[in-house]
């Protein structure tokens, strides 16, 4: 049975959205019979994350939170995975929805044995409507930006290669961009730039032909 780890921080408005965007992915992984582990919210400390990765080598890791080129941050912006602990992702396929982690952390993880590291090499930007702050999944301005990101994980769970998962994300982004370019909805002025920027910033290091299943 494949081991899947979700790390979801939740301590500000941005991480609240990232956290809930994984709900459907956790449900999908569970339905597919993967052995799902979660390190959520306050538990997503550097100690907990690193301890889990040392004891159990997951086949797939999904990191959600804040990031920078050289670090993925755990709860309250504590450095959880850095260049010096990138080896903890050895033998995993890792997807990181956090700012800029693909730029340096992803490269280092792959150099240390991570099979494939998918992430963003710039800030992951998304629009949000103030009235939906407590119900992120209902926010129709954020959803079009999160969907192409979630589809990467969904495809990996289906057993596609990393390359196919990335291409599926680009196709879905193109479909959303096409839809919003022709829309007269003023929300398009917020959605389109974020969609295009995140799509351009999507990056993968490592083996493009690897798959989870």
């Amino acid at each position: 049975m494949k081991n899947v780890l979700f790390v979801r921080t939740k301590y500000d408005a941005a991480t609240e959205y990232l956290y809930h965007s994984c709900d459907e992915l956790i449900s999908d992984a569970t339905k597919r019979g993967f052995n799902v582990s979660q390190i959520d919210g306050e538990k997503a400390t550097p100690e907990q994350i690193q301890s889990y990765l040392k004891k159990t080598t997951p086949d797939f890791v999904c990191l959600n939170g804040h990031g920078a080129p050289e670090v993925f941050y755990g709860h309250q912006n504590k450095e959880a995975i850095t260049l010096s602990s990138a080896h903890l992702l050895t033998n995993t396929i890792t997807f990181t929805r956090a700012c800029a982690c693909a730029a340096k952390l992803g490269k280092e993880a792959v150099a240390k044995g991570c099979k494939a590291f998918i992430g963003y090499n710039k800030p992951f930007v998304f629009p949000k409507k103030n009235e939906f702050e407590s119900r992120p999944l209902k926010d129709d301005s954020a959803t079009p930006v999160f969907t192409p990101s979630n589809t990467i994980v969904r495809h990996i769970f289906k057993g596609t290669t990393v390359n196919e998962a990335i291409n599926a994300s680009h196709r879905l982004s193109a479909k959303e961009i096409n839809k919003w370019l022709f829309s007269t909805d003023p929300d398009a002025n917020a959605i389109l730039p974020a969609l295009v920027m995140n799509d351009k910033a999507l990056q993968v290091h490592g083996d493009l032909e690897v798959s989870l299943v």
Binding site: A13, A14, Y17, H66, G67, A68, Y73, N77, A98, C99, A100, P123, F124, V125, F126, P127, K128, K129, N130, E131, S141, D187, A190, A194
Partner: peptide
């Protein structure tokens, strides 16, 4: 009514 989340910022 729309704001932008810009990573760590």
């Amino acid at each position: 009514n729309i704001s932008f989340s810009i990573g760590n910022f």
